[in-house]
Design a protein around this nucleic acid. Structure first.
Lengths: 269, 269
DNA sequence: TCATAGCGCTAACCTAAGTCAAGAAGCCCG
DNA sequence: CGGGCTTCTTGACTTAGGTTAGCGCTATGA
């Protein structure tokens, strides 16, 4: 049940690395459809630029937001993978969400309060920065954005609930199957990866364990089992799902559980 | 890991029992401060009455909303306890949220989609009914309500995340300690129960197990342990926390983790 | 180029929690 | 007041997953 956190620079603060002058890049934003900004028309998009304070790069392995510290900024993830996690005093870690491009990072019920969790960059990331103080004003200006945010949070809540069901009630085999299948669909549908191709998976087995309430050792054993069943293969930081249906079977989900991800970009509230 | 669901009428649909004509009871609403309506002034309150369709009683043991079925109505819980749960095909159950008076029930990202979870009445409940179709219009009329809802969902998400950390990384003793302490504070602060008094706890040991990813047998063992440590006592559908600090210690939370509940009513966004 | 560090992988062993079973309370309802 | 429910409780036994420890591979960087 335990897992002593190792050396790693897990609690280092994020280090700003470059800070472009915010030209007018929103029009060329690569994640617009999946992000907060989806409901905005081309003309409206200009408004956002007045509220954001540019983009920033975060090196892999650094924390964008730190549990216990107040967050002065919110981020729209443009590229890269992140995860949210909570730490117990003795170092046990729970990873609760894997964030992909388009996800909005750092919002919580009470923005005045210190962060309830940390956000960690798995790969090098590029984020679009919103000073916290601007946010409510932006929402007042463009209520559609507020609605969109509500929608995104509700989606996060549903993912969290789903994950809770996994960790509370599914076996290791089911859990890992479900988790990887879920990632597989999320990534495929956002990035338009062709069926049958493998996807990047910048997670160690320890990350997977911390996301699912397992040990890295047991993750390894279970991954082997899934490989021997011919369902998937994890190697070289990539995931290859060979038999999505068989995997869905193991995970105990009905066919279209992940179909709803397909609606993600379209549903502009 | 498994737990065969027993006989019980878990999947019965909710049975409407009475349907008062909606006089003008909003002014006398007992949960106004804790509910969606908190941001409304006395005058504004009248508006809500045009959108809601009255109140309804649900008998204990019935489901208000059912996983897989579309929800035509949303509810504001006025009195009674409920819980949200998800069911796996083989009957394993995960309870994800205990709902108390003031909680808003049934909202999810995509209201058109069938419910992703069920809501079950633990005690007899009284709810304030909002037809789903009215909701967006109501929010357009009163944006403060939309903001308030966002706030409430974000709060739910944070609770779900906290619970995930428990189930994924805490031992049975810690988990149960945390869970009961959390309920203790939530109930105390909402109902103004005096310090040292016991609170109602309409949960069976099986419910607690299903909420925390444990077996009822193991919950029983662990409850005994907590009792023998002099920390708490569960009996006759009531919970008596004898040593909140000691319990917080076991649960591994810092003092003011639950202090934020205190801000619940006040923070009208 | 060698050394260090992180990660993957496996094996042997251990323990927290699950399973099964059965009796004791308590409760509802005729 | 007496069956038929759940729910609680406990004991004996099993098991999924945790722990510890090593080895090998691959980067990285001085």
């Amino acid at each position: 049940m335990t897992s002593k956190r190792p050396s790693a620079p897990l609690l280092d603060s994020a280090k700003p690395q470059s800070q472009r002058p915010s030209g007018s890049p929103c029009a060329a934003c690569t994640v617009r459809d999946q992000s907060l900004c989806a409901p905005l028309s081309d003309e409206e998009l200009g408004i956002v630029e007045g509220f954001r304070s540019g983009t920033r790069r975060i090196a892999a392995g650094h924390d964008l937001l730190v549990q216990g510290e107040p967050a002065t900024e919110l981020y729209n993830l443009i590229s890269g993978w992140v995860f949210n996690y909570q730490l117990l005093e003795d170092g046990r870690r729970q990873i609760d969400k894997i964030g992909l491009p388009g996800d909005f990072l750092g919002f919580q019920a009470d923005l005045e309060r210190p962060m309830g969790y940390s956000v960690h960059a798995l790969t090098e990331c590029e984020v679009c920065v919103f000073p916290r103080r601007n946010l409510l004003e932006l929402f007042r200006e463009k209520p559609a954005l507020a609605l969109r945010l509500t929608w995104m949070i509700a989606r996060d809540e549903s993912l969290a609930r789903e994950r809770l069901t996994s960790v509370g009630r599914r076996s290791a085999l089911e859990r890992i199957g479900y988790f990887l299948l879920d990632l597989y669909y999320r990534v495929r549908l956002r990035e338009g990866v062709p069926v049958g191709a493998d996807i990047p998976l910048p997670l160690t087995q320890e990350h997977i364990g911390d996301a699912l309430g397992l040990t890295s050792v047991h993750v390894n054993r279970t991954l082997r089992e899934l490989r021997e069943m011919g369902l998937l293969r994890v190697a070289g930081r990539r995931l290859h799902v060979m038999d999505p249906d068989g995997l869905a079977d193991i995970a105990g989900v009905d066919e279209d559980t992940f179909a709803e991800y397909a609606t993600f970009p379209g549903t502009a509230c």
